[in-house]
């Protein structure tokens, strides 16, 4: 399940139809406590936070254990990703914070951040507007298994240009966000493009579901839940999933009382070709 990630607070982006102008960068006073929208595995909530605090304190206030978080993102104007180091002192020069959970895929997260950048852009400058548009298109493509080998270079080039050439701090922060993400998560992004795998098993086109023949009890719950009729089986038979029909929606996984539905991004085990009686598969 993916949480929200935002460059700026949704209040600033304004409703559809308004004429947004680039926001003024607010003066940062570390001594002043401010309202910050924190999102993470447990949902989204506004916290009143001091300008500086340890990451561990932030996690504490949000109510999540450090081992459940892989990275922290500070939104505009800071626009930066950090690895989850509990002792790190954070300067909260931002209006939004995103705590990326252990299970998060950074490509998926960045694609959603890029969509937010695209909708938040005031539209006045080419790098802010078209840059965010390209970021979103490229990252969405990578998440859709349509990444191209040159994409990492394009992203790096674009992030650098946006950081220096955007007319306002919003676009500059978007560029900076991307550069810091690339520095931290490059191998994970690259895996999507070159190895065609999503290590976090989040991006659907990369995921193959299968039914573990050792765990399946033939209860038929998975087959009932499948909207694509991709699962075959009878009561008491080990069910079989047809990956040519599977949309990787994950409904069956949620439905299975045995935890027999498993996902992989590469390397499927040996599986029965058609349903066989439970216990008959070796």
């Amino acid at each position: 399940m993916s949480g929200t990630i935002r460059l700026i607070s949704p209040a600033r982006a304004g409703p559809i139809g308004s004429s947004p102008a680039a926001p003024e960068r607010p003066a940062f006073d570390p001594g002043q406590r401010r309202q910050i929208l924190v999102s993470g595995p447990g949902g989204e909530a506004v916290h009143k936070l001091p300008g500086r605090l340890k990451l561990s304190e932030l996690l504490d206030r949000y109510g999540v254990q450090p081992d459940r978080i892989r990275a922290v993102y500070l939104g505009w104007p800071a626009g930066q990703f950090f690895p989850c180091e509990p002792d790190r002192e954070l300067e909260l020069d931002c209006e939004t914070v995103c705590l990326a959970g252990r299970e998060a895929c950074m490509v998926d997260l960045l694609a959603r951040l890029a969509l937010d950048m695209r909708t938040a852009a005031c539209g006045r400058c080419v790098f802010g507007r078209e840059g965010a548009y390209q970021l979103h298109l490229i990252l969405s493509d990578i998440a859709a298994k349509k990444g191209r080998s040159a994409d990492l270079d394009r992203l790096t080039e674009l992030g650098g240009a946006m950081r220096t050439q955007c007319a306002c701090t919003l676009g500059q922060a978007a560029g900076g966000s991307l550069l810091s993400a690339l520095a931290l998560f490059r191998p994970e992004i690259e895996a999507h493009i070159t190895k065609k795998i999503c290590p976090a098993l989040v991006c659907r086109p990369f995921i193959s579901y299968y039914i573990d023949p050792a765990l399946c009890t033939g209860c038929q719950a998975c087959a009932d839940s499948c909207g694509e009729e991709a699962i075959a089986g009878r009561k008491g038979f080990i069910h079989v999933l047809d990956r040519t029909l599977c949309e990787a929606c994950g409904q069956c996984r949620a439905a299975c009382p045995q935890g027999a539905i498993k996902a992989v991004s590469e390397g499927l085990p040996r599986l029965p070709a058609k349903p066989v009686a439970c216990g008959a598969w070796r």
Binding site: G14, P15, G17, A21, R118, T119, A121, G123
Partner: peptide, 17 residues
């Protein structure tokens, strides 16, 4: 005429279209 926001991002138009 001004910058307006819609689902596709930012474009030029009248208020409320």
């Amino acid at each position: 005429l001004d910058y307006r926001r819609d689902r596709q991002g930012v474009r030029i138009g009248t208020e409320g279209g």
